[in-house]
Amino acid sequence: MNTVSTPTAIKPVDFNTYEKVDGSLVFPELYSKGEVQITRRKFRHQNCVDSNPDYIADEMLLRRALAWWFGLPDPLGFAGETGSGKTELFYYIADKLNEPVYLLQVNGGLMPEMVEGKTSLAQGETVDEMGVVPHAYKHGGLILLDEVDKANKALQSWLHPVLERKPLSLSLTGELIMCHDQTRVGLTANTFGQGGSERYSSSNKLDDALRARPGWLTVKYPEPSVLRNIMAKKFSMIPAGFRKKMCQVALEVQKVTENEDSELSAIFSTRTLVKWGQTMVAFGLNAKVEESLDFVSRGACDPDDWESLQAIYQRILGEDKSSTVGDVLKKYTPVKK
């Protein structure tokens, strides 16, 4: 007898389903097996973002951020120098917890109507498309307001109900959106919104209510041991002795420029250090070390301070600065016995 099979209906995935897993499987750098249970989304959402596989989180900062994630309703702000890993830490946590991320890159020209959404034409009909912030506010996920201290006054006013988890009215559609119970709001900034920064001149003063709503954590450049581990993971082809010198360059510039009133105006972040390694490899063995170093740092230093920055490079690198990459690799590669 012939039988005809009927296709089985595919059940849609409920991304708001959660599971408990051993903390050591999610954050092995923090927890040992059996120490704690972590609640996370069971299924990975299409808006999840893969974090940097070489990222190494500061342990205490990660612990504080997770305490916020699982226990506090208010937004969390990370403030710190450019390239210190503020956005990467949010990505890292969300990635581990299968949390969708909705990124809004804030700039001085971003207006509320641009954030709410847009009207587009689809199959001859006009369709209102909700922006990422209202979408996440309504359906849940991590809203990440990147460089929020660049926000103009109009956008600051619009963000108030988002940070306070109050009903959000959209002028585009007239819809009144309620905050989803699994919506979290993260912010990054170079300043605490006080305005008047000479180093970050495009940062605006945030109104007092907006500044006061989030809890703030300061993100500093990694400790020397963490920095060396980052470089070791990414650049095993560079001998450890010279990787150590590369880290010393970054650490010394950071030390000299840590205060805004420093006589030297330059930025040498972890991001800059990693770019130096990548550029050194890309330029090849015949290029001088100083070529890749100047390439990644020239634009982050005021012209009047370039000679002072070069003096730091010379003091730490010595003759290696003007040597070829090939010669430096030979010099620092241990001789096999």
Rank of each mutant, 00 (worst) to 15 (best):
V226D: 02
E164L: 14
G318E: 02
L210T: 06
G215N: 03
G71L: 10
Q310G: 05
I38P: 04
D22N: 12
F235W: 07
Y18W: 09
N47C: 11
E19C: 13
V328I: 12
M114Y: 07
D50E: 13
Y91A: 00
V325A: 06
T218Q: 12
R40F: 08
R40V: 05
L72P: 00
S84F: 13
L251N: 03
D304R: 15
L25K: 15
K330I: 10
K331R: 12
G195H: 07
D302I: 14
V274C: 09
E113K: 15
M280L: 13
R64W: 05
T279N: 07
W158L: 00
N47F: 14
P12A: 08
R40A: 05
S292R: 10
T270K: 03
V325Y: 08
E113M: 14
L142Q: 01
V26M: 12
H45P: 05
P28F: 11
G196F: 07
S120Q: 09
Q248P: 05
S297H: 06
L61W: 03
L66S: 01
R228K: 10
W68H: 09
D128R: 14
S197M: 09
V127M: 13
I56D: 01
G131L: 06
L30T: 04
T270R: 09
V21R: 14
S51C: 11
S120N: 03
S202T: 12
S120M: 08
K205R: 11
N52Q: 04
S5A: 11
Y92C: 01
Y102A: 02
T272W: 00
K220R: 10
